[in-house]
Write a protein that binds this DNA or RNA. Structure first.
Length: 934
RNA sequence: GCUCAGAUGGUGGAACUGGUAGACACGCAGGACUUAAAAUCCUGUUCCCGUAAACGGAGUGCGGGUUCGAUUCCCGCUCUGAGUACCA
């Protein structure tokens, strides 16, 4: 029979499902291997061809590891809470759970037909109460923990309470709010329960904090940054304002240092690690207080009579010739003198108008304004002017810097522009034309640090500042604590109720706190979150928290649930956690670098601290698959003399001769840029009687690479390709497209070649009449060479995630076997195993044909590579003269350097090229090349 | 602006530690089979000069360098893509 992929693929997909072929074993002596994909959000649009790219790669790897004797865990699930389902619910009134259910069904059908080896018995859905029960439970553990800096780990809040009872607040070194109280043990005991709870909330790892949100009064809702465009809501275009709100937050900053250090222990792409490092943004420096000059009268009620700056170069303090504040700094209004008020107001107004983007592209223009006030340098008493400029950001450090023009280029340009002093502070500094940030040399013009080196000077300055109470060493992180509340419906309810305005956890036995029914998925009229609409929803009469958890809550621990997905006693059993430990290989997009991948590491570290999990980092190895971009096709309507588009369409190669207007055309009716005219006429009624100006009898479409989107008609759905070519072809083709990690536009130009390859492979097992026919002879030397070449190649390629090159190697192997007219059973049996991770359906089918025991080949062993079959006695050396290859010469590999040289020089062909000359030098690289210098 | 990644035929790409640049596939051209088409098979296909072959020359974004030898290493530049903090 010919290759009937449809029947074969359905048959094996059913077999795998019926037999639970890929159910991972929890009790086995095999080594474990955990292969994880980033689980998808089940959107209404269904799966497109970009989704499976990473899934196919991980599936090949998982199947390969099974053949290599590993017990493989390869699960899949759905990140099913999220905004799109909620927005759809707002528009239609349809409960998000119903839409989500329907979308999941579509995803599952699409995933199944690609033939993935997922263990579906472990499926998770973050929106299912069985699952979010444990998300809520982990939230409770965070609530019941604080971060002990001395132990450098999270500890139980009970331990903190015990310490307060015995020793008061003395001796506690915690990551906590800024305004904590100092108290004795007796004072603690004298506090009311409410006072104690209020104090403890300042220490908990999840806590309430006032944060600013994008509030849209017209929509009555909080908006994400993406939903706000230039101060207006993307939906509706209503004005958006900043509003302060009490919000749940996570103290991720407690883990900043460990998140940074952990990066050195994991095998992730370097650019991705770099993104996390930048996001965490550690800088070691000092906080320095500059007293305001005597007589400066702050107009506003902000009391402190100093400006605090953050610097990473405390050693340069003697070179600080002015201070610069962000225009938004709270002291600016108070510092501005009457004479300078117009200038400052004018500058602030201008800075507000500039967008972030404009500020960035305009790095060379220097701008600022003088407040008219002065401050005092704490180390030498010098009087320094206070300026404002928009290169200083309100959100970083203290929103104020000490400007050291000799060492910082921006400060240098500023000083030049406004004619401020530039003081050389290091003997070897060269500051004639630009700033010199050197740390080498010895200090000059620097009071008590003159003559010291960088390290000595930094220590001395910080010691002095601490001594006079004007500063201290400080590690600054760019990363902020993560806001954990969302004023939305479709998310996990926070398992908290309020009593006397303080939050308390509900009892563990009352988990899960199930999402209540509401009449509408919108906020209430007075701006409360949708959950306020729920009727009789309270905890023994106390009001529940009304916000829900953010999208990243459920995805921050899901890999643990797969280890033991059905457990209703724990998020996963101790045994399962001890056995599976962590994810060995994680494949997904780099867009999650500073979101999901950071939060997951944070939760994992926390869970390790309190003894819930076995290892510190969740994902040992990470691979980013590239993005598959859309590839749009265009037709060109000819424009008539009045400028109206006509119903005449001109082929792309001829558009220069006409005035045309390009129109997107559905990429599914275009093949290799050739428009299917019949389908095109049916596609849109207005094109039914279109006329065509062709080139070479064809209508050629234009092409552009764009993001995949419905409106551009360039979304390619795997379903059509599977029905045309089958899943095995799709799998191999997506791999053949190019390196996994590279982004590339989608095209189906080469898919025929992959399909032909599979047919050719099928034909090796069949005679001319398409009857199954293999021979039991001893394999020939040539056949064995082909086989062992591909064994080695596939092993090497899979281990380095180079799937595209192994597809080519398969093609070469099959071409060679076809040329050899090989139908050798032993060879083909091994070929089937090697190819099976890539094209599992066809291989399972051929495996049974070959008379193997009934059942799957998934757990057989990968053939063993034997180098003996690849040994050659001769090699066709390329002979080059002055680096240019002239000819090839067969030379026995038994010959060594000097003998090879003699062999080459003895050759009449070589002498012809040498033309009587004697080579000055002959380089022989055994088994590679001979080069002669003439 | 900065950081990272990348630039190879008509196209996707290969060349793993410096050693025959263009594997494999698409497309294209020609041919076989066929009444015809599809399917299949065969041949050719980096460019230039040469009507064909032999042969010759150029060639991995651009300009230099190191080397017997560079797509690969070094220096300088151009362009493209991604991320993004004027981060003190």
């Amino acid at each position: 029979m010919d290759y009937q992929f449809k029947d074969i693929e359905q048959k094996w997909q059913k077999f795998w499902a019926d037999n639970q072929t890929f159910k991972a074993d929890d009790k086995t002596t095999k080594p474990k291997y955990y292969v994880l994909d980033m689980f998808p959000y089940p959107s209404g649009a269904g799966l497109h061809v970009g989704h499976p790219l990473g899934y196919i790669a991980s599936d090949i790897f998982a199947r390969y590891k099974r053949l290599k004797g590993f017990n493989v865990l390869h699960p899949m699930g759905y990140d099913s809470f999220g905004l799109p389902a909620e927005q759809y619910a707002i528009q239609t009134g349809q409960h998000p759970a119903i839409t989500t259910e329907a979308n999941i069904a579509t995803y599952r059908r699409q995933l199944d037909q690609i033939g993935f080896s997922f263990d579906w018995s472990r499926e998770v859905r973050t929106s299912s109460p069985d699952y979010y029960k444990w998300t809520q439970w982990i939230f409770m553990q965070l609530f019941n923990s604080w971060y002990n800096k001395d132990a450098d780990k999270a500890e139980s809040i009970d331990k903190l309470v015990k310490h307060f009872e015995q020793n008061g607040s003395a001796g506690i070194n915690a990551v906590c709010d800024d305004e904590i109280q100092s108290f004795t043990a007796d004072e603690w005991k004298a506090m009311s329960n409410q006072e104690q709870q209020a104090e403890l909330l300042k220490y908990r790892l999840t806590y309430l904090r006032e944060s600013t949100v994008n509030w849209c009064p017209a929509l009555g809702t909080v908006l994400a940054n993406d939903e706000v465009k230039d101060g207006f809501s993307e939906r509706g275009g209503y004005p958006v304002e900043q509003k302060k709100m009490m919000q749940w937050s996570m103290r991720i900053t407690a883990y900043a240092d460990r998140l940074l250090k952990g990066l050195d222990t994991i095998d992730w792409p370097e650019p991705l690690k770099e993104m996390q490092r930048n996001w965490i943004g550690k800088s070691v420096g000092a906080l320095v207080r500059f007293q305001l000059e005597n007589g400066t009268n702050l107009q506003s009620p902000t009391s402190n009579n100093y400006i605090e700056v953050f610097t990473t170069r405390a050693d340069t303090i003697f070179g600080a010739s002015f201070l610069v504040l962000a225009p938004e700094h709270e002291l600016v209004a108070g510092l501005t003198t009457a004479e300078q008020k117009a200038d400052i107001d004018n500058y602030i107004a201008q800075a507000k108008k500039k967008s972030e983007l404009e500020r960035m592209s305009d790095a060379k223009t220097v701008s600022g304004a003088f407040t008219g006030s002065y401050a005092i340098n704490p180390v030498d008493g010098a009087k320094v002017p206070i300026w404002i400029a928009d290169y200083v950001l309100a959100g970083y450090g203290t929103g104020a810097v000490m400007a050291v023009p000799s060492g910082d280029q921006r400060d240098y340009l500023f000083a030049k522009h406004y004619n401020l002093p530039i003081i050389q502070i290091i003997d070897i500094q060269k500051i004639e034309t630009e700033a010199d940030p050197t740390k080498e040399g010895h200090y000059v013009n620097s009071g008590f640090i003159n003559g010291l080196t960088y390290k000595e000077a930094t220590a001395a300055v910080i010691a002095k500042l601490e001594e006079v109470g004007a500063g201290k060493a400080k590690v600054n992180f760019r990363m902020r604590d993560a806001i954990f509340g969302r004023q939305r419906y479709w998310g996990e309810p926070v398992p908290v109720y309020f009593k006397d305005e303080l939050p308390y956890l509900i009892a563990e036995k009352d988990l899960p706190l199930v999402l209540p029914e509401v009449d509408k998925y919108l906020p209430t009229e007075d701006g409360e979150p949708p959950l306020a609409r729920a009727k009789d929803w309270n905890y023994n009469g106390h009001e529940y928290e009304l916000s829900t958890m953010p999208g990243w809550a459920g995805s921050s621990w899901y890999w643990f649930r797969y280890m033991d997905a059905q457990n209703d006693e724990a998020f996963a059993s101790k045994d399962a956690i001890e056995y599976w430990k962590d994810v060995d290989l994680y494949i997904g997009g780099s867009e999650h670098a500073t979101g999901h991948l950071l939060y997951s590491r944070f939760w994992n570290k926390f869970m390790k601290d309190i003894g819930l999990v076995a290892v510190e980092e969740p994902f040992k190895k990470l691979i980013n698959q590239g993005m598959i971009q859309g590839r749009s096709n265009f037709v060109y309507r000819v424009i008539d003399e009045e400028g109206r588009p006509t119903n005449t369409l001109v082929s792309h190669g001829l558009i220069k001769e006409y005035k045309t207007s390009p129109q997107h055309v559905d990429v599914n009716i275009v093949e290799n840029e050739v428009l299917n005219i019949a389908k095109f006429k049916q596609w849109r009624p207005e094109y039914a009687d279109a006329e065509f100006i062709l080139e070479n009898g064809k209508y050629i479409c234009g092409v552009e690479v764009e993001k995949m989107s419905k409106s551009k008609f360039n979304v390619v759905n795997p379903d059509d390709l599977i029905s045309r070519y089958g899943a095995d072809t799709l799998r191999m083709y997506e791999m053949f497209l190019g390196p996994l990690e590279q982004s590339k536009p989608w095209n189906t130009n080469g898919i025929e070649g992959v399909f032909k390859f599979l047919r050719k492979f099928w034909r090796l097992f069949h005679n001319d009449a398409w009857e199954f026919s293999v021979s039991g002879n001893e394999p020939s030397k040539a056949e064995l060479k082909t086989l062992h070449t591909i064994i080695r190649k596939v092993e090497e390629d899979v281990e380095r995630f180079s799937f595209n090159t192994s597809v080519s190697s398969f093609m070469i192997a099959v071409n060679e076997l076809t040329a050899l007219k090989s139908n050798n059973k032993a060879i083909l049996n091994d070929m089937v195993i090697i190819l099976s991770p890539y094209a599992p359906h066809i291989c399972e089918e051929l495996w049974t044909f070959l008379g193997n025991e009934a059942g799957t080949l998934s757990y057989t062993s990968f053939p063993k590579f034997n180098p003996a079959y690849l040994v050659e006695d001769e090699f066709a050396y390329p002979i080059s003269i002055n680096g240019k290859t002239k000819l090839n010469l067969n030379i026995p590999l038994s010959l060594e350097g000097a003998d090879v040289e003699a062999f080459v020089l003895a050759s009449a062909d070589v002498q012809k090229y040498l033309d009587g000359k004697t080579p000055r030098k002959v380089i022989v690289v055994k088994g590679r090349i001979v080069n002669m210098v003439v």
